[in-house]
Design a protein around this nucleic acid. Structure first.
Length: 450
RNA sequence: GCGGCUAUAGUUCAGGGGUUAGAACGCGGGAUUGUGAUUCCCGAUGUCGAGGGUUCAAAUCCCUCUAGCCGCCCCA
């Protein structure tokens, strides 16, 4: 027996009116990005697997166990089948495009933003889906374009603060019981600092490894940086005693980070430095950051994350092209806004979650009025009004309540009106009604718009 | 990938071996042939997530699967 087909695990359909909120978020994001000089880039959803294994890092969780990867069909016996992957993140793709189109040759700083689906095969949870959407941006260019400047880091962070402000998400403060957004950042060191620090970590971990929890023992081997942000209670004392990354930053990296912080202070962007913040992607250098949010998200409380990736371009065969970027978890942003709307913390989000009433609902009385009703709807719609048309079989008893749920005005088109070239317009909220000639309708309804 | 909880009408949920599966909201029809949100009457809500098993009898107990949620891992 055939069973009902459903969306595959971890993927979902987004339906109205929720999609109105998605559109709102994307509109605000595009508006903010445009003001900071970003242009949109659209890269393919499929990329060569190698882009991620080299760019993101073979040993990362994303690459080692979360990618949707398959062998493409070879076109000829002589051709080798290519391994393809559904992108698990978009930074590598953007940098690939930057290299492929020789954008560095322009000599100018590239500011690129994107909105699109990403794919990771993880166990689904609230705020974590196998197809999820990221809104991101990258600032990248040859060193001569100023792409390495701490000004760029601060600008990106300040832009994110502006975006969240404009979406009506408050900053954490005493007034909201510190439940707004929080920015944490750290410097994970340059591409020469980082290996020195990781080596020191390994050395420090070796003698105490046996005392750590099994998870941390494993991390000590595979990815020592991850031990730092472990939540295991018993391991905290050991973790506190481990070497700090700050002590391994060279003078240049230290100055860079200090300059980022100073610029944030100047812009009034609140932050906390978290020396234990590390990110799961290999390409991050120097500035790494994340914005977290308690409302609406369970344990998946990272609303967005990002950082600098000064060596990524070279890793995947490109020219030197330092950059910094971020990715916002759009699904999580939506969950946050929905929760804020529910808690009456965001009238704006609430507004987008409810379908807007149309300007008018046309009720033809009798199917012989259907054609005239549709023609009238056409005229009104071309005049910029939002209109729904009922069917002539609907009785008044059905048409009026239906009109009330959908629209502000009911236009009755019956035999009497048709003969006179008129229509009856009823204002549903008050029950008042007037008869007008059809030609007056567009002007009349337009002036009644809220 | 690991552990736990859950799955019944369009929606929110009740029913925990006993034959015909319920409530509310919503939906359809009527009281009222062109005037609503109130009221009254009537009706349909459904493979009780899927498959298998135990039993005279399974929505109910057992197993497997699927999906969602919560936690872990990790990340957006």
């Amino acid at each position: 027996m055939s069973s009902v087909l459903k969306a595959v695990r971890g993927t979902r359909d987004l339906l109205p009116p929720e999609t109105a909120l998605w559109n709102h978020v994307e509109t605000v994001a595009r508006s903010v990005f445009a003001r900071y000089g970003f242009g949109e880039i659209r890269t393919p959803v499929i990329e060569p697997t190698e882009l991620f294994s080299r760019g993101v890092g073979e040993e990362t969780d994303i690459v080692s166990k979360e990618m949707y990867t398959w062998e493409d069909r070879a076109r000829a016996a002589s051709e080798k089948a290519q391994s393809l992957t559904l992108r698990p993140e978009n930074t590598a793709g953007v940098v690939r495009a930057y290299i492929e189109h020789k954008l560095g040759e322009t000599g100018r700083l590239q500011k690129l933003c994107y909105i699109g689906p990403q794919f990771r095969r993880e166990r689904p949870q609230k705020g974590r889906y196998r197809q999820f959407f990221q809104i991101g941006a990258e600032v990248i260019g040859p060193p001569s374009s100023g792409s390495e400047s701490p000004l760029r880091d601060a600008e990106v962070l300040e832009m994110l603060a502006t975006l969240l402000d404009e979406l009506g998400i408050a900053r954490a403060s005493a007034e909201n019981n510190y439940k707004g957004w929080k920015l944490a950042l750290n410097s994970v060191g340059s591409s020469t600092d980082r290996p020195r620090y990781v080596a020191a970590l390994r050395e420090a971990l070796a003698p105490v490894k046996d005392k750590l929890c099994p998870d941390n023992q494993r991390r000590a081997e595979t990815n020592p940086l991850r031990v730092l942000d472990s939540k295991d209670e018993n391991d905290q004392a050991i973790i506190d005693s481990l070497p700090k990354i700050v002590d391994y930053l060279d003078a240049e990296s230290k100055q860079h980070f200090a300059d980022v912080l100073a610029a944030l202070d100047a812009c009034g962007v609140p932050y906390t430095v978290n020396p234990r913040l590390v990110r799961g992607l290999d390409y991050y250098t120097r500035t790494a950051f994340e914005f977290t949010m308690e409302t609406g998200l369970g344990t998946q409380n990272a609303l967005l994350g990002g950082g600098r990736y000064d060596g990524l371009s070279e890793t995947i065969g490109g020219p030197k092209a330092p950059g910094i970027g971020f990715a916002i978890g759009e699904d999580r942003l939506i969950l946050t806004l929905q929760a804020l709307a529910e808690e009456k913390q965001s009238a704006e989000a609430d507004n987008h979650l409810h379908a807007h009433k149309l300007d008018a609902y046309i009720a033809p009385l009798g199917t012989e009025q259907n054609a005239a009703a549709l023609a009238l709807a056409s005229t009104l719609r071309r005049a910029g009004l939002s209109v729904e048309v009922g069917d002539g079989t609907f009785k008044m008893k059905k048409a009026i309540p239906l009109a009330d749920t959908l629209a502000r005005h009911l236009i009755i088109l019956g035999e009497d009106e048709a003969k006179a070239g008129e229509a009856t317009v009823k204002t549903l909220a008050t029950g008042e009604q007037v008869r007008l000639s059809s030609s007056e309708l567009p002007k009349r309804l337009s002036s009644a718009k809220p």
